[in-house]
């Protein structure tokens, strides 16, 4: 476990989380959420929780992104608020 790397990763995770909830374009929000999942996966790996990282990478970064892209394609792309 490397502490500076932890802080760098959690900074990127924080930036991605804030960007995903403030952006108006929903497709961009989904892509940023995928990047958030991948950075969380890196963070779990770095903290030696390999099983959790594996689940995060396979479920959240691949299938979750695909399902949310499907939802955006079936509804409106722009957020109202």
């Amino acid at each position: 476990m490397i502490l500076p790397l932890d802080f760098i990763l959690i900074l990127f995770v924080f930036i991605c989380a804030v960007a995903a909830i403030t952006i108006k374009d929903l497709l961009s929000a989904v892509v940023i959420l995928g990047a958030y999942s991948f950075l969380m996966c890196l963070l779990w790996t770095e903290m030696a929780a390999i099983d959790v990282a594996f689940t995060e990478a396979s479920v959240s970064a691949s299938i979750g992104t695909v399902l949310m892209i499907g939802c955006v394609a079936k509804t409106k792309r722009r957020s109202k608020d």
Partner: peptide, 10 residues
């Protein structure tokens, strides 16, 4: 690491 859930998702 891994297992039924992750393998099924892949």
């Amino acid at each position: 690491p891994g297992g039924g859930f992750q393998g099924g998702v892949i």
